[in-house]
């Protein structure tokens, strides 16, 4: 594939998306390492990492759409599925943790007693 030169502006936008995506993913990972209990750590993957990946995918979408001359839809599909499934997995993990009593007596207040 011949790599056509991209206009500077597009290059800039793609790089911005990549950097923003990487930053959000990094922050999500820092959260995973620093937060104190299971339920707090759950917030990292559902938000920061989802948006981080979303940004990376938008960057990829712009880049490959330009390179191939057609709109690259794979990334769009991946993004949609990512945003639709991340909350579900978070919900299931939270449910399982509640069921097993993970983090009881931890920093999270109002732990439901059932």
């Amino acid at each position: 594939m011949t790599v056509s030169t991209m206009p500077f502006l597009l290059e800039l936008v793609v790089s911005l998306f990549l950097i923003a995506g990487a930053l959000f993913a990094l922050i999500g990972s820092i959260g995973l390492a620093r937060l104190r209990d299971f339920f707090m750590r759950l917030h990292g993957p559902t938000k920061a990492s989802t948006l981080g990946l979303g940004c990376l995918l938008v960057g990829s979408l712009l880049y490959f759409s330009f390179q191939r001359g057609t709109v690259s839809v794979h990334e769009a599909i991946v993004t949609v599925f990512l945003f639709a499934t991340a909350p579900v997995s978070a919900h299931m993990m939270a449910k399982a943790a509640l069921f097993r009593g993970v983090g009881k007596g931890g920093p999270s207040r109002n732990y439901p007693d059932r």
Binding site: F39, L42, H43, P87, A90, H91, A94, K95, L98
Partner: peptide, 9 residues
């Protein structure tokens, strides 16, 4: 789950 600091459990 996707918005400000909340996750439905």
């Amino acid at each position: 789950s996707l918005t400000p600091g909340t996750v439905s459990a």
